[in-house]
């Protein structure tokens, strides 16, 4: 039996009212359909779908993934069906659920970001955009924009200028001062900021003396990156006033609560979905239990309540 005092879980992310703070991280949840037989998608705070670009992208040649100590490397290369197919083939399924759909968008050039944002802005069933300026696995675009404060500012401003949807900008950790980039995208008009994308890494097959990944390097995710993500979220919330969404190695409710305490308004669950398709539900229920156990009636009373040690 659940304690009858149901704590309030609603959070507001840049104008998007979420029923709870548990979202799925882009690239780890397909277009929703893949996990719909394992969990009730209606219970999610939001679904962030796999990154969508203007044209279909084939992705990188295999081997694309490798498990590493407490984590995994991936180099998918933003394989996706392209924005038109996404709208025609994926949105109709997602519209059947009562859950905000946030589309992660990607471009090789600034005009491409703008174009994808423009196209999606008129689509019923799209509730927000997450601008990916942080993918480490593509030659053009991605992290090239996210590592430069001026470029990050411009992309954000460009996307904002063509859409009325809430815009989240997703940041890369592969940079010296993430708070500086966060400030740039905030001044570019970002409604919220999500961080971190994966950490660029590498792994070598010592028998064959070749990289495990065909793309040589990949993005590290999973529990190994959580302390880095947490530190960066903490740095960013201290420097910006827009809502921050914590992402990186969240495997269970305790991990999620750490991010909330540090100041994240919501969290994204990524690699954990691969390990356990019910991970988001377990995390959601665990957060609720934590609030009940700690006599907190509204999750917003927990967010950012980090005390000095």
């Amino acid at each position: 039996m659940k304690n009858p005092r149901n704590p309030k879980l609603q959070v507001d992310i840049g104008g998007l009212a979420l029923k709870n703070p548990v979202m799925t991280a882009s690239g780890t949840f397909g277009y929703g359909e893949e996990y719909s037989r394992y969990i009730d998608l209606n219970r999610l705070g939001a679904i962030i779908v796999k990154g969508v670009s203007l044209e279909r992208r084939e992705g990188n040649p295999p081997q694309r993934i490798m498990e590493t100590p407490c984590g995994m490397l991936n180099s998918i290369g933003l394989e996706n069906v392209g924005v038109r197919s996404f709208i025609d083939d994926k949105i109709p399924f997602l519209k059947k659920f009562n859950v905000p759909v946030i589309v992660n968008i990607f471009g090789e050039t600034a005009p491409e970001y703008r174009k994808v944002a423009e196209i999606l802005s008129d689509v019923e069933g799209v509730h927000g955009l997450e601008v990916n300026i942080s993918c480490p696995n593509v030659e053009k675009g991605g992290v090239a924009f996210g590592a430069d404060p001026d470029m990050a500012y411009e992309i954000t401003r460009d996307v904002k200028s063509v859409t009325d949807l809430p815009v989240i900008v997703k940041l890369t950790p592969n940079i010296t001062d993430i708070a500086e980039i966060a400030e740039s995208v905030e001044s570019g008009g970002a409604d919220a900021i999500s961080l971190i994308n994966t950490l660029k890494g590498m792994s070598v097959d010592i028998e064959k003396r070749v990289p495990h990944l065909k793309n040589i390097t990949g993005g590290l995710s999973g529990p190994a990156v959580k302390p880095v993500a947490l530190r960066m979220v903490w740095e960013v919330v201290n420097r910006v006033s827009v809502p921050v969404i914590g992402v990186g190695g969240i495997m269970d409710a305790a991990d999620a609560v750490e991010f909330l305490i540090v100041g994240a308004r919501a969290v994204q669950v990524g690699t954990a979905n691969f390990v356990n398709p019910r991970a988001t539900m377990d995390i959601l229920e665990g957060i609720e239990d934590y609030l009940i156990d700690h006599d907190i009636s509204d999750i917003n009373e927990l967010i950012g309540m980090l005390k000095k040690g």
């Binding site: 394992y38 694309r64 394989e79």
Partner: peptide, 27 residues
């Protein structure tokens, strides 16, 4: 066979080259 993460078609990790592009080994 290919290295897999999710097993359900979401991560696109287990890609295999086919004539039309890549397909997912798991799904």
């Amino acid at each position: 066979e290919e290295r897999m993460a999710c097993g359900v078609g979401a991560c696109l990790g287990c890609a295999v080259r086919v004539k039309s592009g890549y397909k997912r080994v798991c799904r």
